[in-house]
């Protein structure tokens, strides 16, 4: 049984669904990458999982429990974490406080996890007393990921973590994603830089018009001529 299982998800903001039956399964050992054209429902899938919008049909099972109708404040304690694409740091709070907010649901000692995050992103340790709003885009992305890791998630969901970043930061973020996964955290991410992301994905999903178009390992998708032609720019 997978860590998370999406079965025929139909979801959207109003009455008209954006997702018309999405299926996905991710294990704790997996790095899942969702790619596809704009408006395909990539981000919507993550938001539907995280209870941020209305799921009309289908079921979501996380860690053996039905979480279809649960909202964020119940999902985080169960081991789900989400890094939104934009506005993903508390700009008026320091880096350190941002990380503490990620651990809001925890009542135990968080210093160990803090050390791990600072070890993972040494840049942040030096800036931990600075308001997150003063950091560069790449550093903000690190704060956002660090915040999401502070709750010790089983599954980390990232919405376009490399958007707007320089290649150097993109590579660093991807490296960290692989490391986090190696430590036993499942990953599900949406990526625009599809080729780079699929290169290390154990599971790749191509979405179009709110439905799965292709599913396979990252390498399979990269090798598939149809996928390459339609979705990876030839």
């Amino acid at each position: 049984m997978s860590l998370i299982d999406l079965k025929d998800i139909k979801a959207g903001y109003g009455a008209t669904p954006i997702l018309n039956g999405v299926n996905m399964a991710i294990d704790a050992s997996d790095i899942g990458v969702i790619v596809g054209p704009n408006g395909a429902g990539k981000s919507t899938t993550l938001k539907a999982i995280f209870g941020l919008l209305n799921v009309m049909d289908g079921t979501i099972t996380f860690d053996g429990r039905d979480t279809t109708r649960l909202e964020a404040d119940r999902l985080v304690p169960m081991g789900l974490s989400f890094v939104p694409q934009e506005h993903n740091v508390f700009t008026s709070m320091t880096v350190h406080e941002n990380l503490e907010m990620g651990a809001f649901i925890r009542r135990d000692d968080i210093s160990g996890t803090l050390d791990e995050v600072y070890e993972m992103f040494p840049d942040l340790k030096a800036k931990r007393r600075q308001p997150a709003g003063e950091l560069s885009g790449g550093q903000r992305q690190m704060v956002a990921m660090g915040r999401a890791l502070m709750s010790k998630p089983k599954l980390l969901m990232l919405d376009e973590p490399s958007a707007g970043l320089s290649p150097r930061y993109m590579m660093e973020i991807f490296e960290q994603v692989v490391k986090i996964n190696a430590a036993g955290v499942g990953i599900l991410m949406v990526e625009q830089n599809a080729r780079q992301a699929l290169a290390f994905a154990t599971k790749g999903f191509v979405l179009a018009n709110g439905q799965n178009r292709f599913t396979g390992t990252g390498q399979e998708l990269l090798d598939d001529p149809d996928v390459a032609k339609s979705f990876l720019g030839g």
């Binding site: 995280f50 941020l52 909202e71 964020a72 404040d73 999902l75 985080v76 304690p77 989400f82 939104p84 506005h87 993903n88 740091v89 508390f90 700009t91 008026s92 709070m93 907010m101 990620g102 809001f104 649901i105 915040r147 709750s151």
Partner: peptide, 10 residues
């Protein structure tokens, strides 16, 4: 600061 992110953070 950011109500949506606060919710996302649990």
């Amino acid at each position: 600061d950011n109500p949506d992110l606060a919710k996302v953070s649990g």
